[in-house]
Nucleic acid binder design. Structure first.
Length: 556
RNA sequence: UGCCCCGUAGUGUAAUUGGCAACACGUCUGACUCUGGAUCAGGAGACUCUAGGUUCGAGCCCUAGCGGGGCAGCCA
């Protein structure tokens, strides 16, 4: 990941906080250390990407360290498949954790020891109440809770019971280990929170080694502490948990990271919750987690986004504590900005219209075309040109509106990198549809020859009929029809039925025949496209439209 | 009804920590252009949620209210 010089970086509140910590030598010279702590129960999405960029960026900017740590404390929800995809996605995004992939479950033994310590201090106890009883005695938002009848067991009894919990003597749900804090606290998280529950289930890494599992609140701070994390950054919903995070660490007297909360990313016209994303996949509203319309990291990767664009996006949107709904236009800007500078240009005709140049000889001419006007180092290529070509259907209009400056009957237009042609005749079928244009070309107007003073308003793209290669092109639109579908009860009804349009017989420039899955191009005047990694075969090229070009004309 | 957090152009963030509200995107206008892209130049758009208070001076501090979000899993 590189520092982006284009963006004037104003410090967010987290950077300022860390600055102060360093100034006051709060960490006693210790290396600044952050982490990304996903639970391996789903695929990463663009919201996680924001967090990864933030955490990795801090480590990078403060000459610190960034860990990837799986918070795998719940055996019933977690799977190896998710671990693998998460590692791949974090790497791809540029979050460089080097060799530091950690698992919370690897710290279970140590956590167990700390739990014994709290029991011995009289700060934790085994509760025999059922889940139902615990809920009922927790109180409500406005009423205090009631203390458990088991709250004042002796240390010995607690030690004995807790050991037997570990040994598997009790059934799921029959006992828990609870922190002894304050059942009357206005912060419900402090009303004797549960530290361990009994779960007789196979863990994706630990197998059958454990049947008691630590809860998030108990485990998370310990994991951070073990790894020497200095700044434990999480989302806003954990704000009320911070007093508990602090309580455990203070009682244990171990390394105590600073928890900091920030607002998670929300993007308009999509959903971001894991549950909803899962549902879209499971109920086949989309074609898997990596469907290019999905906001998942694998989805936007397949769509053609670059890590650099996502990093820049993260930089652009910044970090704050108020929840927001970010306009997708900011993301689209980031990818256009990146691809404009780096993507090879090509011509592709999505909906072809045959054009015969009646005064052109029956020969083939090779024309010189620039690969990227933004980067001359990318060189140029040759494009075959002949008597018969295909242009975009929308680049010809029989009855054009005012301001239209492409081809019209009797009008002239430039063929990019070729000649200016004039439309002499329009040929229609029985149904009155335009099926062919007869044009003449002006040999004096060859691109780059400098022999013509003729000016035309429009330049259109084309491919040679004899040489063009067929391809499938997939055009994507927003997945939902409303800005914030996640807020709606009937969000599934708000899916955009036209979010995918498959054009099965587009025609592309010959050199693209050899393009490889994952390669990105700009199809001139259309947008940026990426060779699909899923459906492209040796026989068939499939392109995904990453994003359109800005179109000042279409808006009017 | 309790506790915690947050309210700044359409969107996302700034404001040297109490000193003329700025940047990016978007939008509009013009220039340029063999991509209606890019680039360049310029414009519009904000009573900083409201009402009090402190102060020479408040987006920033205090009080009250209003609005938004979060919390009553043996999820994270």
């Amino acid at each position: 990941m590189e520092e982006n010089n284009n963006v004037t970086k104003s410090k967010n509140f987290i950077y300022e906080l860390i600055d102060k910590d360093i100034e006051s030598n709060r960490w006693d010279g210790k290396t600044i250390c952050t982490r990304f702590p996903p639970e391996p129960n789903g695929y990463l999405h663009i919201g996680h990407a924001k967090s990864i960029c933030l955490n990795y960026g801090i480590a990078r900017d403060f000459m610190g360290r960034f860990n990837l740590r799986f918070d795998d404390t719940n055996p019933s929800k977690e799977e190896q498949e998710y671990v693998d995809s998460i590692i791949e996605d974090v790497r791809w995004l540029g979050g460089d954790f080097e060799d530091r992939v950690f698992f919370g479950s690897d710290y279970f033994e140590k956590m167990y020891g700390w739990a014994l310590e709290l029991i011995k201090k009289g700060k934790a106890y085994v509760d025999d109440q059922t889940a139902d009883e615990i809920r009922q005695t927790r109180g409500t938002l406005t009423e205090p809770g009631k203390e458990s009848p088991y709250r004042n067991r002796s240390v010995e009894e607690n030690l004995n019971l807790f050991e037997r919990m570990r040994n598997g003597e009790f059934a799921n749900g029959t006992k828990t280990l609870r922190a002894k804090i304050d059942m009357t606290s206005p912060n419900i998280n402090l009303r004797d929170p549960i530290m361990y529950r009994i779960v007789h289930e196979v863990h994706h890494r630990q197998g059958n080694k454990w049947c008691i599992y630590p809860t998030y609140d108990w485990a998370h701070g310990l994991e951070d502490s073990i790894e020497g994390i200095t700044h434990s950054i999480c989302t806003l919903e954990f704000e009320n948990h911070r007093p508990l995070y602090d309580w455990f660490l203070d009682e244990l007297g171990i390394h105590h990271p600073q928890q900091i909360e920030f607002a998670r990313l929300n993007l308009n016209y999509t959903v971001m919750s894991k549950r909803k994303l899962l549902q879209l996949v499971k109920e086949n509203y989309v074609d898997g987690w990596d469907d290019p319309r999905m906001p998942t990291v694998c989805g936007i990767r397949r769509r053609g986004y670059t890590p650099q664009a996502i990093q820049n996006f993260a930089e652009i949107i910044g970090v704050a504590k108020r929840d927001a709904l970010t306009d997708i236009a900011l993301l689209e800007y980031a990818i256009r900005d990146d691809l404009n500078k780096h993507a090879q240009r090509a011509m592709a005709v999505l909906r072809p219209l045959k054009v015969v140049i009646t005064n052109y000889p029956d020969t083939v001419e090779e024309l010189d075309a620039i690969n990227n006007p933004e980067d001359t180092a990318m060189g140029s290529r040759e494009i075959p040109f002949g008597k018969e070509i295909l242009i975009e259907q929308t680049d010809f209009m029989e009855n054009p509106p005012k301001g239209y400056h492409r081809l019209i009957p009797g009008g002239e237009v430039r063929l990019r990198y070729a000649y200016i042609i004039k439309c002499e005749e329009v040929i229609k079928n029985d149904k009155g549809e335009v099926v062919e244009l007869r044009c003449t070309f002006d040999p004096e107007t060859k691109s780059g020859s400098g022999t013509s003073t003729k000016k035309v308003k429009g330049t259109i793209h084309w491919v040679s009929a004899k040489h063009a290669v067929g391809a499938e092109v997939r055009l994507y639109d927003r997945l939902f029809t409303v800005e914030n579908p996640g807020a709606e009860e009937n969000w599934l009804d708000l899916i955009n039925k036209n979010s995918l349009e498959i054009i099965s017989s587009a025609l592309i420039e010959p050199f693209l025949k050899n393009s490889k899955p994952g390669e990105r191009y700009q199809f001139e005047r259309h947008g940026y496209f990426c060779v699909d990694t899923k459906y492209t075969t040796n026989e068939k090229l499939v392109f995904n439209r990453t994003v359109t070009l800005k179109d000042g004309w279409a808006k009017k």
